[in-house]
Computed example of a mutant assay.
Amino acid sequence: MSAGPASDVTNVVSGQQPGLSHVAIIMDGNGRWAKARGLPRAAGHERGVEALRRTVEAAGNLGIRYLTVFSFSTENWRRPAAEVNALFSLLKAYVQRDLSRLKREGVRVRIIGLRDGLPADVAALVDKAERETAANDTFFLTIAFNYGGREEIARAARGVAEAVAEGRMKAEEVTEATFSGFLDTDGMPDPDLLIRTSGEYRLSNFLLWQCAYSELVFMDVLWPDFDQACLEDALTKYRERERRFGAVLPGAV
Rank of each mutant, 00 (worst) to 15 (best):
R158N: 14
L207N: 03
A34H: 02
N205E: 02
V13A: 12
T178W: 00
S204Q: 05
M188K: 01
R32D: 07
A165S: 14
E151Y: 10
T10G: 09
S73F: 01
G167K: 06
A123D: 13
R32C: 10
A144S: 09
A24T: 06
E57N: 13
Q17A: 14
D220G: 10
K170T: 13
K92V: 14
G19F: 04
V109E: 08
E151Q: 12
F206R: 02
F226E: 08
E46M: 07
R202S: 12
M169I: 12
V84Q: 08
A144K: 01
L208F: 03
G148P: 04
E172F: 01
T74V: 11
R243V: 08
G31E: 07
G181V: 09
C230L: 04
N136M: 05
S180I: 05
A93Q: 14
L208A: 08
A163W: 05
A123Q: 10
D227Q: 04
W209G: 01
E50C: 08
Y201F: 13
R150T: 06
T55A: 07
A58C: 12
H22N: 09
S214T: 12
F72E: 04
L20W: 02
A156P: 03
R239E: 15
G251Q: 10
A86R: 05
M188Q: 15
S180Q: 01
L207Y: 01
G44P: 05
L125S: 06
V107Y: 05
A234C: 13
R79Q: 05
D225S: 14
T185M: 02
L114R: 04
A177G: 04
E232W: 06
A134T: 15
L62I: 07
A157S: 15
A212G: 12
A42R: 10
R78M: 09
W223Q: 03
G38K: 03
V221T: 15
W77M: 10
L99A: 10
D121N: 12
R54L: 06
A43I: 08
E215C: 11
R168I: 01
P191T: 12
E50L: 14
T197R: 04
N11F: 11
V84G: 06
R241G: 12
G60P: 07
G251L: 06
A154R: 14
D190N: 15
T138Q: 14
G44S: 11
I153V: 15
E75H: 05
T74M: 01
S14M: 11
G31K: 07
L87F: 03
P5D: 05
R101N: 06
A135Q: 15
V221S: 08
I112E: 09
A123K: 03
P80F: 07
K103T: 13
R97W: 10
A247N: 01
A3G: 11
R53T: 12
R115N: 09
A134N: 12
T175G: 10
A234F: 03
E240W: 03
Q96D: 15
A212E: 11
A120Q: 14
H22A: 09
T68M: 02
E215T: 13
M27L: 07
G63Q: 08
T74D: 01
V221N: 03
P119Q: 08
D116C: 02
L183F: 04
A34G: 04
Y66A: 06
L249Q: 12
